[in-house]
Amino acid sequence: MYSQGLIGAKTETTEDEAFLAAFQARIDAEEKIEPNDPMPEGYRRTLIRQIGQHAHSEIVGMLPEGNWITRAPSLRRKAALLAKVQDEGGHGLYLYSAAETLGVSREEMTEELLSGKAKYSSIFNYPTLTWADIGAIGWLVDGAAIMNQIPLCRCSYGPYARAMIRVCKEESFHQRQGYEIMMTLARGTPEQKEMAQDALNRWWWPSLMMFGPHDADSQHGDQSMKWKIKRFTNDELRQKFVDATVPQGEFIGLTFPDPDLKWNEEKGGYDFGAIDWDEFWRVVKGHGPMNRERIAARQKAWDDGAWVREAALAHAEKRKARRAAAKMAAE
């Protein structure tokens, strides 16, 4: 999700040299930065952007999978999918809390998501057309997310790193349940196998795009690496993901929709074909198949929940006033 989190981040900062050098020395010594510590404005802004977009990705990510909860093929699959979608909601909440420690409010972040000012991972702007897509999302999308998130457990910002540790512990179940769905379909009837193959065909390239632009085209990568917000570049993580995933797909007899995909003995990894970056930017800029629907769904949830938020606050106020009155009467 998550290297895309830097899209739109502004890393420039205006502090004097001595301040920046002292901060960098702490980073280089692998000291964690905690919420009230002095930090460059660029560091704070970059993290707010990245953690906020990461949180939005978790929340919007509930939508494509939620689409299949009522149509899961068995009670076992349905229970697992419900638990997974609930986890994604939890991950969004851990991350919003981490971002809030940097001085941004939950309401501001929600507003930015709904207005389109903040992004979320491009992957969630693709539709889930068949049950096999739920398998493909768990296996590929959560697989790619884990690749990205494991190094984030060592991010220099303490609250983000701690949130990532919780997320990574829970994410492994997501990937395994997805792969199990794919494996079951791939070993089923010819129609089921075809469904699994079709899902892989549609999700493979968008999954590779999750790691964000090539290093050469990534504007904010260098500063983020220096501040140890990121530990690996987009291309390094993408390569790791391809190397880990291709044998898993071959094991269950599926083929990858890339004629240029082949093992390169010399580099000890797979070579793969060119990514369609026009498609990537189109989706990031709001013109993917599901962008409008995703934001409309979030907007509806926010609007429909307004009376609940208002009622809960009014109820809390009323109880507080009653308690105060009872205390006064007793005195």
Partner: peptide
């Protein structure tokens, strides 16, 4: 272990 937003202590 973290934080949550809620209108009152019950929630």
């Amino acid at each position: 272990c973290g934080s949550v937003h809620a209108a009152d202590e019950v929630m």
